[in-house]
Design a binder for these strands. Structure first.
Lengths: 146, 146
DNA sequence: ATGGAACCTCAACCTAACTTGAGGTCAAGA
DNA sequence: TCTTGACCTCAAGTTAGGTTGAGGTTCCAT
């Protein structure tokens, strides 16, 4: 065990699978705030591995860096986040995931209905045809998902 | 009924809810190919409304313009697409949607498991911790979705 | 104490999917 | 015929999420 647990950016990159430039980019976006050595090099806490892992996971779940920053802002200040802190965030993301899944399922069901009636090209389908009943609601096929 | 069913770009924009510049952009990407007047103005077929509506729908389902172009390439050449043509494409997109939904559901289930064990911040979670059993598989939390 | 790997900043580049603006042309109703 | 709104092209700008390269500095094992 080293007396000093601070990691240089290269180590953090290896541990998270991120590129060094991506980590610097996240810093520039305010997602992570490393310390600096006297020589201006970044030094990260071990808990920053979790933080970056979380960013990777959340991205894969479809969140933008902005949304992720919002989630990370819920972590405690001045104290290393513990299991409960991360669990709270995970739960909140789970809700977003559920919503996204539900939305896609709605879209799929609508598409299913339209396969049945062939409406993507038929004049008399109210779902897709802006000339028909929905014309007053504004143009386009927006309705499918909304 | 006009003798001539060709539409100028502005009409098409109004009918689809797209901006004029977006339609021009789609043309530049090969997604749509209007005729031209003697004075070089675009003139679109009525069936192009469907085509653009389809682009809008597919985008909302998460397809990129490139993927959409791939789908549109399946439409018949030289003949106005009919209900069956569009239905075939819809079905293919439905499959992609199903896959996407399944992937998100897998991700959510993994996340659920991790809320239970608090692993986003615990050293002993093999799912998220690159130092543990999965270390040999390369760094990072990639595992969650893959 | 030294040499090279690893670090630093800053600017420029990249893709996707568009928008905006400049400068100029077309077409259709009065 | 004239006027004016709609159209044209082409270049540059925008946001997200980064990468790449130039030119220079720091750290640490020997």
């Amino acid at each position: 065990m080293k007396a000093n647990d601070l990691l240089p950016i290269g180590d953090l990159a290896r541990r998270t699978g991120l590129s060094v430039s991506a980590i610097r980019y996240y810093e520039s976006k305010g997602l992570i705030e490393p310390h600096r050595t006297g020589g201006n090099q970044r030094r990260f806490l071990r808990s920053d591995i979790r933080r970056l892992s979380f960013i990777l996971i959340a991205q894969r779940l479809g969140l933008s860096l902005g949304e992720i920053e919002g989630q990370l802002a819920r972590l405690p200040q001045g104290r290393t986040p513990d299991a409960k802190d991360w669990a709270a965030i995970s739960r909140s993301i789970r809700d977003q995931l559920d919503a996204r899944i539900a939305e896609l399922q709605r879209a799929r069901d609508n598409l299913d209905g339209c396969i049945g009636c062939g409406c993507l090209s038929l004049k008399n389908c109210t779902l897709y045809n802006p000339d028909d009943a929905l014309a007053t609601k504004g143009p386009g096929p927006r309705i499918v998902i909304g």
